[in-house]
Amino acid sequence: MDMVTSATSLSRSGLSDWIIQRFSALILAAYSLCILASFLTTPEMGYAEWRALFDSNLMRIFSIFTLFALCGHAWVGMWTVGTDYLTERQLGGGATAIRLVYQAICVLLIAVYLLWGISIFWGS
């Protein structure tokens, strides 16, 4: 692994990234199934029911946790895809620069999701 590749990984360690990816996956899976279950148990989902679901403190904390899990999960995943396909073998000499731009866009989008999500779950 070259220097730039490892310097941009989430935890600078493949094993830590591997664990982060799995733990965050469990949180994301639990949250997805929870939202699915709430749709299935509330056939007539209106504004009041929807609002009440996200207003409970438990759901707020679960949502924020999931948001953090999403950000970590997305970074490890997008990093893995980027370092696999945006390489010198595929793109030639400019690969590192292209990959850094790609990673910068990913970081920006993750930061937007994080702040946006917090404002939705905590602010509204």
Partner: peptide, 28 residues
């Protein structure tokens, strides 16, 4: 991998709809 990258981008649509739906009765 393809679904993962697509979901990362699609999160923007989901957050937008979530924010709108939680904003008010009218937003919902």
């Amino acid at each position: 991998r393809i679904s993962g990258v697509a979901l990362f981008i699609a999160t923007a649509i989901l957050l937008y709809l979530l924010q709108l739906s939680l904003s008010s009765e009218q937003g919902f």
